[in-house]
Amino acid sequence: MAGLAPVPAPIGVYANLIAQAPETIVLKEKVLSLTGDSFHIKLANGTPILQVEGKVMSISGRKKVRDMAGNHLFDICKELLHLHTTFVIKDPQDQKVMEVKSKFALFGSKAVATFTSSNGKQEELLMKGNFFDTTADITDEAQGGIVVAQIDRKLLSGKDIFFGQQTYAVKIAPGVDMALIAAMCICLDEKNNESK
Rank of each mutant, 00 (worst) to 15 (best):
G61H: 03
G120I: 01
E79F: 08
D133R: 12
D67Y: 03
M127T: 01
M68T: 14
K96D: 09
G70A: 10
T135H: 12
F74R: 03
Q95L: 15
R62W: 00
L73Y: 04
N130F: 00
D133P: 04
M127D: 06
H82R: 15
F87H: 12
S102G: 08
I59W: 13
V65T: 12
P92W: 03
E99R: 13
K63L: 14
V97W: 00
R66A: 11
K101V: 04
V112T: 07
G129W: 14
D67P: 09
V100K: 03
D94N: 11
T114Y: 09
S109I: 01
E124S: 08
Q95W: 07
G120D: 02
H72G: 05
V112G: 03
K121V: 07
M127Q: 01
T139R: 04
I76G: 09
K128A: 03
I76K: 06
D91I: 00
G120H: 08
D137A: 10
T85R: 15
I76A: 12
F104R: 02
Q95T: 14
F74L: 02
I76Y: 13
F104L: 06
V88E: 02
L126C: 02
A105W: 13
S60K: 07
A136T: 03
T85W: 05
S102R: 15
G120Y: 10
M57F: 15
F74T: 01
K121E: 10
N130D: 02
D75F: 13
T139E: 08
S117E: 06
S117G: 02
G129H: 05
V88K: 11
